[in-house]
Design a protein around this nucleic acid. Structure first.
Lengths: 215, 215
DNA sequence: GTCTATAATACGATAGAC
DNA sequence: GTCTATCGTATTATAGAC
């Protein structure tokens, strides 16, 4: 990949963070990248296609950064710890903010949608691996679609990241509440085998056939 | 309130839905409202202030629409049912999309932040009332900050709504997974009193002092 | 309060020199 | 591949007629 292309890709990400989707243009991106404005169109055809490429580029880069850390997660509480770490680090780096901006832009710019969905799914797939491992031997594996849950967590986390921009204190409390919730769920694992089987039976009785009647 | 102001307020909401924050301008809003472009500045001073006013206006309107429905919720599953109903209705009406667009815009436009936070908190406060009622007599009241949880749910839901715009199928699976999760949590209420006390004791043992050590 | 007209600036995108 | 220059359009915001 040419040097200019790389500059434009990271310039696009930087611009999305600093100016948001509403303030992102070929000119602002080129200024951030330190290259001529016309090169946006020469290399990528249009601003939207550059943003789409930048989304894939940035997501791959970031997910790779956390893959190792996520691979070591073996409990729900540890997962929330990683989430908090990710939240703290990415708040300054801003790569989750990029996903938020692109999600907003993709609502009315169909060309952004596939790339944004792909960027999100990089996170979701990684998260699903962790969930499958963490939730193994718990009732959740049996009753909850882990792929759907991973999507819900990833999308929800981006929403929380966006909310952090308008109410930092509230977002902190929200994250703390999720930590408490994870601690609770984790505590159920500490039940003795007899109790655990009773819980499982109860769950099975109550939620049986739910997935059939719901779709 | 003058007729023109009202037209501009709803025109602003409509424009955010149809064109996103990136495509929202005094001209597009005025076109949607059917009034002259200069009136945006006469009545509201700037586009951002109009958007801020529209946010408050729209959120009050919408929350009022669901207040009655939320007041009748008495279980977690019923809450998720309302969430799905809200998701379906607002997908076409698009008022949650408005919050998503404003959240994205507020990240880099400080004047939008207070209004967006206020619009979100209207939902959050309503949700907190429901949670306090639904979670009463469950271990969650004791161990989880319901205000923080309400914020997490509201922000997360907006994130999921945004995600729906780039991957409708994935969003549907995510919502289904949350329904399954709610069913599970609700099932724990069905445990007999003895088991329930055992669960509660286990939770207390595991999560004790967690909130102190975490902050 | 509402309109037209306009100023000053920014936008996407292209043509053509180098 | 990179640059300058430019076209046509859209932007915020204001001045002034009505």
């Amino acid at each position: 990949m040419s040097d200019t292309k790389a500059k434009l890709l990271s310039g696009a990400l930087q611009t999305l963070i600093e100016h948001g989707i509403a303030g992102t243009s070929a000119r602002t991106i080129a200024a951030a990248a330190g290259v001529n404005q016309a090169l946006v169109f020469y290399h990528f055809g249009s601003v939207d296609e550059l943003l789409a490429a930048a989304c894939r580029h940035g997501a791959e880069q970031r997910v790779a950064l956390y893959r190792e850390q996520l691979a070591q997660v073996s409990s729900l509480s540890e997962l929330v710890d990683v989430a908090r770490d990710l939240h703290t680090k990415e708040k300054s780096a801003g790569h989750l903010a990029v996903l938020g901006q692109l999600l907003a832009g993709a609502q009315t710019q169909p060309r952004l949608a596939p790339a944004t969905a792909a960027g999100m799914s990089l996170w979701t797939e990684e998260l699903e691996l962790v969930l499958a491992r963490v939730l193994a031997d718990t009732p959740l594996t049996e009753f909850v679609d882990t792929a759907g849950l991973a999507t819900a967590i990833a999308a929800g986390f981006v929403g929380l990241e966006l909310y952090e921009g308008v109410d930092a204190e509230g977002a902190e409390r929200a994250l703390a509440a999720l930590e408490q919730l994870a601690a609770l769920a984790g505590a159920l694992d500490g039940l003795g085998p007899v109790l655990q089987r009773a819980v499982r039976t109860q769950l099975r009785r109550t939620t049986r056939k739910r997935s059939d009647s719901q779709d």
